[in-house]
Computed example of a mutant assay.
Amino acid sequence: MNLRFVLDPQLTCELREQIVALWVDVTNAGGAVGFVAPVAAADVHPLAEETFAGLAAGSDRLLVGYEGDRLVGILIISDNRFHLKTHWRVLKRVMVHPDTQGRGCGAALMREAERIGRAWGLDGLHVTVRGGLGLETFYARLGYREVGRLPRALRLAPGDDRDEVLMWLDLGGHTAAA
């Protein structure tokens, strides 16, 4: 696996469509990225447009991972938009293409986000995960710890409520620079 990461790439029409296609593929493979399978691009587009608007406004940052020229992973580094929380960031829409899973792409993407957070002098990174999928174990291997749980906060379908698990990575920085 040889990944190349780009922070804040130009958000071209082509990249937007690649992100939507990735989002659809990840969701339809069972990924917990805001939807429940099955989805089509038309289902993802409204939330994707909101995400792109946050990126265009400069309040959120996009980290993409490429294997060669192929987009294989993304995550959003979200500004908290509240002055008392500028010393940490939220990671959203963490996803890698299903055919790259198990090869370390997700871990590499998260390590790059950690590297960026440390370079910015952040105190920590926060991510929420959908309970019931074992994602807590993945993040724990990367140094994240569970700091809270919202019971049955996510309703996937009638009778299928899942916990939203709050995970935190302490970076130990003490100056928010970005």
Rank of each mutant, 00 (worst) to 15 (best):
A32G: 07
G68W: 10
V26S: 09
A21H: 07
Q18D: 15
Y66N: 04
L11C: 11
L15V: 01
L63G: 02
P9A: 03
R70L: 09
L62E: 00
A48Q: 03
Y66A: 04
R16C: 15
S59R: 14
V64E: 04
A29D: 15
L15I: 01
V36H: 13
F35G: 05
Y66S: 07
E14H: 13
I19D: 04
R61Y: 07
R70E: 13
A48C: 08
F35K: 09
T12N: 05
C13V: 14
T51V: 06
E17S: 13
V20S: 01
N2A: 14
A53C: 05
R61L: 08
A32M: 12
V6R: 00
L47S: 11
V33P: 06
T51C: 12
A41D: 12
V33H: 11
L7T: 02
A29H: 13
L71T: 10
N28P: 04
N2I: 14
F52D: 08
A37M: 06
G73R: 06
V6W: 00
D43Q: 14
R4C: 07
I74A: 10
Y66T: 00
D69T: 12
A29W: 08
A37F: 00
Q10G: 02
G73V: 14
T27I: 11
D43G: 07
G34C: 05
T12G: 06
G54E: 14
L22H: 07
V24T: 12
R4N: 13
A29M: 13
G31A: 04
P9V: 00
D8G: 03
I19A: 07
D69N: 15
R4W: 00
G65N: 06
L75N: 11
Q18T: 05
W23N: 02
L71K: 09
L63A: 02
Q10E: 12
A42Y: 03
T27A: 09
V33I: 15
Q18W: 09
A21S: 15
G30C: 06
P38R: 08
E49S: 10
C13K: 12
A37Q: 09
A53D: 14
A57G: 10
L11R: 12
A41T: 08
V26R: 05
S59W: 09
V24E: 02
N28L: 04
V6H: 00
I74H: 06
N2D: 15
F5I: 03
L22A: 09
G73A: 15
A57V: 02
D25H: 03
A48F: 06
L3D: 11
